[in-house]
């Protein structure tokens, strides 16, 4: 590690390119921590969005029309408004109104941290997308396959669980993978409420050293790297679930 450090210090002295984040141990640790936080945000938000989207999908199967309508309202609202505005509404609006993001009267820490707000916000936002993805996955299951299940005696619930959902999920995989990629990109938004993820840390570093160009490049590469890793994971998952003869 120190060989690399020395090389970058030398680079700084020779050319002025200051990749302090690499050779400065403290900054390096802080930045890596920022990347880890970004990954944690993405993973939690992904799980949260799957939970919310799955819930919506289940509610949509119910016969009670007002419930289905409620899900539609939720989905349309969160798909057609900006994530940042949703985050501000949640964190500054709901957070302060219900005293979730505020400090207590004698300095007690808030009930929900900014990190958690971002996870909740992203889960709600992308849960709407997952709900739509699952809906088209379910609609893509051929009617005659569903009827074949019914003819074999599967009641609606069993048919959903044993036949429709496994097929819908496989069909939805590419779109769910894309959803994951979108979530990874969106975690940068956490910057706005001071979550110390990669972009935020980079900002701290460049305000100190004025090495904006270098830091921006590092951040860009970081996010591209993260996207690449997640895309790979999804591709591996697709391969693992692949059934011969199924798929596009």
């Amino acid at each position: 590690m120190s060989m690399v450090d020395l090389w970058f210090e030398g680079l700084n002295q020779r050319t002025g390119w200051n990749f302090s984040v690499i050779y400065n141990a403290w900054e390096r640790a802080k930045y890596i921590n920022g990347v880890i936080i970004a990954v944690e945000l993405a993973v939690w938000a992904f799980l949260g969005s799957m939970l919310v989207g799955g819930l919506c999908m289940l509610v949509r199967q119910s016969r009670v029309r007002p419930l289905r309508w409620l899900v539609t309202v939720y989905v349309e609202f969160f798909r057609n408004t900006p994530g940042l505005a949703q985050l501000y509404f949640l964190f500054f609006g709901i957070g302060s109104y219900f005293q979730l993001s505020t400090y207590g009267p004698s300095g007690e820490p808030p009930l929900l941290s900014p990190f958690q707000f971002v996870v909740i916000g992203l889960s709600l936002q992308y849960g709407a997308f997952v709900a739509e993805i699952l809906r088209s996955g379910i609609e893509a299951v051929p009617r005659s396959t569903v009827e074949a299940a019914k003819s074999l005696g599967y009641n609606p619930t069993r048919a959903l669980f044993h036949v429709i959902l496994p097929l819908a999920f496989r069909t939805s995989l590419p779109a769910l993978g894309n959803n994951m990629a979108q979530i990874v990109k969106s975690t940068a938004m956490a910057y706005a409420i001071a979550v110390p993820e990669a972009l935020y840390v980079a900002h701290e570093i460049w305000t100190e050293h004025f090495n904006v160009v270098e830091m921006m490049n590092v951040v860009l590469l970081t996010y591209l790297g993260l996207m690449g890793v997640f895309t790979l994971i999804v591709k591996l998952l697709e391969r693992w679930l692949h059934v011969p003869g199924m798929g596009r």
Binding site: S144, A149, K150, S151, L152, G153, L167, M246
Partner: peptide, 21 residues
């Protein structure tokens, strides 16, 4: 009782019958 009925009556369709997974 749909289940009782469908135990007695089996049906085969024109296409996309089988569960591909």
């Amino acid at each position: 009782d749909a289940l009782a009925l469908r135990r007695k009556v089996g049906m085969v369709f024109q296409s996309y019958n089988l569960f591909p997974h």
